[in-house]
Amino acid sequence: MSLDRSDVERIAHLARLQINDQDIPAYAENLSSILHLFDQMQSIDTTGVEPLAHPLDAVQRLRADVVTESNQRELLQRNAPATENGLFLVPKVIE
């Protein structure tokens, strides 16, 4: 399976990554060689094999419905690129 320029552009858009135009051929080649690596899986018969999502056969633990967090807005927003009146600012959201 080989990827072309439009594949790379489509995936990069889905992943919201700006990729320089001149880098696209190199990415396409890299990604194609990685996908080629994946091809060796396809010959393996996995019929009836249960997919393994977690290595341990554990189940979800539950948390008591008790408030444990207090307002830390000032601390938590110190890393924010832009805030005003306690809100995170972003370029206008159009709905």
Partner: peptide, 19 residues
């Protein structure tokens, strides 16, 4: 932000995973 903030191997893996 993501294109400039992430290096090329990270971007490569994000692309592979997204695909």
């Amino acid at each position: 932000s993501r294109g400039e903030g992430f290096g090329s191997e990270v971007q490569r893996r994000i692309l592979v995973g997204t695909y």
